[in-house]
Design a protein around this nucleic acid. Structure first.
Lengths: 217, 217
DNA sequence: GTCTATATCGGGATAGAC
DNA sequence: GTCTATCCCGATATAGAC
C-alpha cells in the first residue's frame, strides 16, 4: 500500500482524506450524528471544501457506504481457495466471516444499519447490489459441497447459506447484549460459537445415517 | 380492554395519544427523523403540550421503547402453556415468535434499532432489562426439553436459544433484502423458513442415533 | 482548490397568557 | 393543561475572495 507523502501532496488528496474521515465517522456515529463540519475537521480541510468535492451530504454518505462494501468483499476470497473437505471449508468460512465482521466492525455496522433501516430507495437497492455478489458466491460454494455429497441432496443451498450468514450476523449485532445476559459464556468467544453452530449444522445437514425418528423420506 | 370515549375525554388523555403517536413515528422513521413537531401534529396537540408531559425528547423516546417491549412480552406466554412433545413446542415457538415480529414489525424494528445502535448507556441497559426476562424463559424451556431427553445432554441450552432467536431475527431484519436476492424463494414464507430451520436443528441437536462421522463422544 | 464569512432553515426547548 | 409566540443553536449549503 503506497504511503502518501504529506510534503508532496499536502492537500492534493483531499478527497481520499475526506472519504476516509467520513467513513469512520459515519460508521461510528451514524448518518445523522455526523455533521459536515466534523468531517471537515477530521479530514483537516474546510467545510466548504467538502462541499466542493461532494455536492451533498448524501453523496458523501453513499460514497462512504460503497467503500465499506468493497472492503467486505475481500474476505470471501480466502475461503474459496482453501482446501480440505466440505465441512472444514464451511467451518473456516464461518470463522473467517465472523472474524472479519468483528475486526471490521465499523464497516459492518455501517452496512448493517442500512439493512435494518430498510427505506425502499436508499439502503435496499444499494445493499442488494452489494450482497448479491457475495451471496451468490456463498451459495455456489455450498452447492458444490452438496454435489460432493457432504450435504443431503434435499436441502436448499440458498437456505443453508442464509442460515450461515444469519448465525454470524446475529452474533455480531447482539454481542454487546449477549454479554449482559445470563449464561451466555460464549459471547466473547466467536470461534467457539462458530464451532458449536457448525457442529449442529453438520449433524443436521450432513448426508449419511441420520437420526430421523418419525420422519418419512 | 376499556375503550376510551372521545366525548368524555377529548383531550384529557393527551399523554396516551402522544405516546401512541411517538411510538408509531419513532418505529417508522427512527429517533433522529422524528421531530417533536411531528409527534405533536400526529397526536393532535401542540408542541408545547408534548414538552409539558415529557420533559425531553429522550424521555418520550424511552417511554415509547418500553411500551413496545411490553407488547413483545405477551407472545411468549402462548408457547409456555402449549402441549405436545418437545420439538413440537420448539417448532411452535419459532413460528409464533417470527409471526409476532412480522405482525408487530414496527415495535420489533424499534427495539432492533437499539440493539444495532449499541451506544453503551442508552440502548444496552434498557435492552438488557427487557431481554433478560424473555430470554431466561426461553432458555428454561429449552433446558426442560433437554431434561425430557429431546436434546443431547452435551448441548448448551443457552446456545440453542440464541440460535433460535438469531435465525428468526435475521429473517425478520433481512426479509426485504432477501426478496431481492436470487433463489431465496422462502423470503415470503416465514413458516416454511421456520420448518426448514427446525428440521435442521432437530436432526442436529436431537439425542439418539446421530451421524457423527469422525466425532469422539 | 481552498479558504472565511454568511445565508437559510429546522429542531429542541421555554415563556407566559388563557 | 393547553395554547401561541419566541429564543437559541447547530446543520446544510452557498458566495465570493485568494
Amino acid at each position: 500500500m503506497p504511503v502518501s507523502l504529506p510534503s508532496t501532496e499536502p492537500s492534493g488528496d483531499s478527497v481520499s482524506r475526506i472519504l476516509a474521515a467520513a467513513k469512520d465517522l459515519f460508521a461510528r456515529h451514524g448518518y445523522d450524528h455526523v455533521s459536515m463540519n466534523a468531517v471537515a475537521g477530521a479530514a483537516g480541510v474546510s467545510k466548504a471544501n467538502v462541499f466542493h468535492h461532494f455536492k451533498s451530504k448524501d453523496e458523501l454518505y453513499i460514497r462512504s457506504l460503497s467503500q465499506a462494501c468493497e472492503a467486505s468483499r475481500s474476505s470471501l476470497d480466502a475461503m474459496e481457495e482453501g482446501d480440505g473437505d466440505a465441512w472444514q471449508r464451511i467451518r473456516r468460512f464461518v470463522d473467517e466471516h465472523l472474524d472479519h465482521m468483528l475486526s471490521h466492525s465499523r464497516d459492518s455496522r455501517l452496512i448493517l444499519r442500512e439493512v435494518v433501516e430498510n427505506c425502499p430507495g436508499t439502503g435496499q437497492r444499494l445493499a442488494q447490489e452489494v450482497f448479491r455478489d457475495n451471496f451468490n458466491r456463498l451459495v455456489a460454494i455450498i452447492a458444490e459441497c452438496q454435489r460432493e455429497g457432504a450435504l443431503r441432496p434435499d436441502l436448499d443451498p440458498v437456505f443453508i447459506s442464509t442460515l450461515l450468514l444469519g448465525a454470524n450476523v446475529f452474533f455480531f449485532q447482539s454481542q454487546e447484549v449477549m454479554r449482559h445476559l445470563d449464561g451466555v459464556d460464549f459471547a466473547d468467544e466467536p470461534s467457539r460459537y462458530g464451532a458449536m453452530f457448525v457442529d449442529i449444522l453438520m449433524r443436521g445437514a450432513a448426508s449419511g445415517p441420520v437420526a430421523n425418528e418419525g420422519e418419512k423420506p
